[in-house]
């Protein structure tokens, strides 16, 4: 099962869209909330939309917080999307919610500014800050679809793979080791978004270390 891409099932609104995009690029995604499936995954994907408090509550109620932390701590291939990125940081201003704390940083509301509509909704550019396997074939400055009212921040510039500007300049793609997380929605970003998923899947299969846990029976 080490090739299996597991999409974490916790009632996230974009779960199916993420799974469909993975299927479209040939990944045969497996949707599960079972910690044993997470432990045995070849790659793990955390989708998510909506409010930070709901996200954390849903993860907690399903007993997924420790399995996700352990999986990431083991340095295995992981992709977080939208709220699946925000949940990785230490804290969100949205409801002053404590998050997983896997990555340093906070989630902040977009500043009130004349003419700046919130949510940030639509296609915006992402500029790559370094070369990475998941961005292969996707030029810096490509357009991705965003929809969010809060944006990530991080004190560690080494984590910032992609940057986007909307009132503020914020890190829209974070990466560390075999973890990558996007504020935008590659599953709704047309061809470049599908390429991003295809790159992630290939990278997870070819470049990642073997999972430490045995597959569940």
């Amino acid at each position: 099962m080490r090739d299996r891409v597991v999409v974490i099932d916790y009632d996230a609104g974009n779960l199916r869209s993420v799974a469909r995009a993975l299927a479209h690029v040939g990944a045969d995604p497996y949707v599960s909330a079972d910690p044993a499936d997470i432990a045995a995954a070849g790659a793990l994907v955390l989708p998510g939309v909506g409010a930070a408090a709901d996200t954390m509550r849903n993860l907690r109620e399903r007993g997924l917080i420790e399995p996700i932390r352990e999986y990431i701590a083991a340095g295995r291939p992981f992709l977080g999307v939208c709220m699946g990125l925000q949940a990785l940081l230490e804290r969100s201003e949205e409801g002053n919610q404590e998050c997983l704390g896997v990555l340093p940083g906070e989630v902040r509301r977009f500043p009130a500014a004349p003419g700046l509509k919130v949510p940030h909704m639509g296609w915006n550019t992402v500029e790559w800050r370094f070369d990475h396997p998941v961005t292969e074939g996707i030029p810096s400055g490509s357009y991705f679809y965003f929809v969010h009212s809060y944006h990530p921040t991080t004190p560690d510039p080494a984590l910032v793979l992609g940057e986007t500007e909307y009132g503020v300049r914020f890190p829209s793609v974070l990466a560390r080791g075999y973890l990558v997380a996007t504020q935008c929605h590659p599953e709704k970003s047309g061809r470049d978004g599908l390429r991003f998923y295809a790159n992630f899947v290939r990278w997870a299969r070819e470049g990642a270390p073997m999972p430490v846990a045995a597959a569940a029976p």
Partner: peptide, 8 residues
Amino acid sequence: TAEQVFIP
């Protein structure tokens, strides 16, 4: 549509 279309 959702199976085949990857824009919102």
